[in-house]
């Protein structure tokens, strides 16, 4: 670095060619640390995972065998991994539309308010900031079958008119759900917490998107006969929010694929009752790290990367097609 610094002081006397050489050298010196780290920390692991996914490697073993596509075959034939795909897809397909929809809904409601809008915004954003693991434990207490706040509240509705709801009637007659211990509810509880945590983030992005919708567009739409609020939304707001929606959906998908904290906190072993919440991140953790089955873990990693890259590429393609109406 010092060499460059000293020689640069002669800059005015140098020819443009020498100057360009200087600049090139400086540029490479400045990008070198980032380049090296990118290769070691990001690219090398992808290649390593790709290679290991065709082996039966384990940490601590001196050698390994190439097993061809065996690991991938297992992924698509064994029932454990079928459960993994079902859990992951259920989670993504539930959490993404609902957290995006609720985010949009909250943003639209808040945007029309004069007073209190900042308060709602702040409160809805709190879960995004909070350590998810801590909040997962708080939720676990709320969902506790006997002393949890949720079942206590439900029990309080027994003997009131609420009992006409079949769910509450059943709960009062027998008992209310175990939630985390029940394979029918476990994955939905995880989905609920995912939505609870993520919709504030989407709301804030939509609120930012809404500020860029021009007022004149609404007037124009009204003149064209868009009388109802729904028409205004359909014809003006929704198209104008196109770029925001593309982004919000992609980032929600990527985050949803990576769900882990809540599942590990609730069920350190095994991925929930009857493996109903055995999502991909948890599978990588359990197979690859805890059970030292690096081959199969790497195969899941590669599949995971393929999903995430595919999603991001779709997003970039959509953005480049200009969903904008600017």
């Amino acid at each position: 670095m010092a060499v460059i610094d000293v020689s640069m002081t002669d800059a005015p006397r140098e020819t443009t060619v020498a100057r360009a050489t200087q600049e090139r050298r400086a540029a490479w010196a400045l990008t070198a640390p980032a380049l090296i780290l990118m290769v070691i920390v990001l690219l090398a692991p992808v290649i390593i995972a790709g290679l290991l996914s065709f082996t039966n490697y384990s940490l601590g073993n001196s050698g390994f065998d190439w097993v061809g596509a065996d690991n991938y075959e297992k992924l698509f034939t064994r029932s454990t991994y079928e459960k993994m795909f079902i859990a992951t897809l259920t989670y993504v397909v539930t959490v993404v539309p609902l957290s995006v929809g609720l985010g949009l809904g909250a943003a639209l409601l808040i945007n029309t308010l004069g007073r209190f809008r900042e308060i709602y915004k702040t409160i809805y954003f709190l879960p995004v900031m909070a350590t998810l693991l801590a909040m997962a434990i708080a939720w676990e207490f709320m969902l506790h079958p006997s002393i949890g706040m949720i079942n206590r509240t439900l029990e309080a509705t027994c003997g009131t008119p609420f009992e006409v709801v079949p769910f509450i009637a059943n709960g009062c007659a027998d008992r209310f759900p175990l939630w985390l211990g029940d394979k029918r509810y476990a994955i939905w509880v995880i989905c609920f917490i995912g939505i609870w945590q993520g919709f504030g983030f989407n709301m804030v992005l939509y609120l930012a998107g809404l500020t860029s919708v021009h007022r004149e567009l609404y007037h124009a739409a009204e003149m064209d006969g868009a009388k109802s609020a729904w028409d205004r939304f359909r014809l003006v707001t929704w198209p104008a929010l196109g770029p925001t929606t593309v982004f919000v959906v992609t980032i929600s998908c990527i985050r949803a694929f990576q769900v882990f904290d809540t599942i590990e906190a609730f069920w350190p072993q095994g991925g929930g009752p009857n493996k109903s919440t055995y999502v991909m991140m948890f599978a990588i953790f359990e197979k690859g790290i805890q059970q030292n089955l690096i081959g199969i873990g790497s195969a899941i990693t590669m599949l995971f990367l393929a999903f995430v890259m595919f999603l991001t590429l779709i997003q970039r393609w959509l953005v480049e097609r200009k969903v904008h109406y600017k």
Binding site: P45, A49, Q258, M281, L305
Partner: peptide, 12 residues
Amino acid sequence: CLLIPVHAIALP
């Protein structure tokens, strides 16, 4: 590299 989430390559 923006496409690669670090959590995803945790195993390698």
